[in-house]
Amino acid sequence: MKALVIAESREGQPLENYLEGLSYAKALGAEAALFLVGAAEALPAFAGTLFLAEVAKHLEYNPKGHKALILSAVEQFGADLVIFAHSSYGWDLAPRVAQGLEAAQLSEVVELAEGKPFLPAYNAKLRRQVETSGKLVVTLQGGAFAPLKAGGSPQVTALDTDRQSQVEFLGFEAAAAKELDLTKSEIIVSAGRGVGKAERVQLVRDLAAAIHGDLGASRPVVDAGWVEHSHQVGTTGQSVTPKLYIACGISGAIQHLAGMKGSDFIVAINKDKEAPIGEVADLFCVADLTQFLPILTDKLQG
């Protein structure tokens, strides 16, 4: 089997998520080549073939162009499998490439069991195995496959195309300045959708204050405007590794887990016993927040 692993660059620098793609290819015993729209001065470490298109011409966002380049690399390499990260770059391009190949796509592969890919389903409460035939495109959940050690220099095969999206790429906008650096916190107490309404975030703040922790939040709470973005934990917020993480009313969407599962000790407080936060929690208190948090805070203060 031959696998084309799609690497990414962001603002001129190659990202490291291709190492997880290489790990997936290796687990399948596939011969791997890399693809990158990037710069010759900043190549990913890899001992093998790299299909390289110049980012100066093809830009970092130009899906029609990148799709055409990937299809050309698939053909030249004779790839059976195209591996993307399930990232903002990967999920935007993978279906376009799959359609170009008339191939199936499996999104956010989380596990390989006996060579078969499994995908998360129903809020990660279930795992799904899917059969396909012919060429296949996959996107891999970040962190699901241990990255291979980077090393070597690639043999470059240059790619080019005149295809271009009619989308004008105007540039990047940095994330809002973080007023709060949660990456250094030792204790984080986070509020999730389960708090139910803005006023009840105070219960979580009170608990955080009682144990000298910082307030964190999951995405829905931030989107609803109950807590500022600087408190957001997860792939679109901060990735944190405190000694103690208390998740209050957080169901445990993959995007949130990715940002906190490295915490030393995780306590979940949730009335839904089946919530996927249970997969990473050390202690799971099955309780209604509104009743439980005041009691807990009171005991901690006493």
Partner: peptide
Amino acid sequence: QRELEGGQRMNLKLQ
């Protein structure tokens, strides 16, 4: 605007 990782965004214009 498209959302990227870590709260970064990308500005795009199209018809």
